[in-house]
Write a protein that binds this DNA or RNA. Sequence first.
DNA 1: GCGCTTATCGCAC
DNA 2: GTGCGATAAGCGC
Length: 108
Amino acid sequence: MTKPSSKFSQRVYELTRRVPKGRVTTYKLLAEALGSRAYRAVGQVMRCNPYAPAVPCHRVVASDGTLGGFHGSKSDQELARKTRLLHAEGVIVVNQHIKDFAQLVYTF
DNA sequence: GCGCTTATCGCAC
DNA sequence: GTGCGATAAGCGC
């Protein structure tokens, strides 16, 4: 963890937790909700995500609705697993891309 | 459509 | 002060 739970991280976790089931959000929206453009800072916090189940990082996707982030192509199983989880929540994901992303995005 | 570059934010060294 | 990271947007081809 290169990033301890700081104020910024707390805010990110709080917002991420605020995302209801079957809904997704983007790094951009999260950063915007925080009043900053720390897209990457948000992602960095997620990467160290010490609140694994409490903070569903799989509900946070790129601005264009692609899963493009998370662990990249590190482990398809992990990614596929998150995709499957999204499916279980009602989010349709095809080829690492969220279907109807525009209406599934949760704006704070 | 794809790839590279610049901007931006927080934290570690 | 510099570098890194799960990004975003713009520009050129």
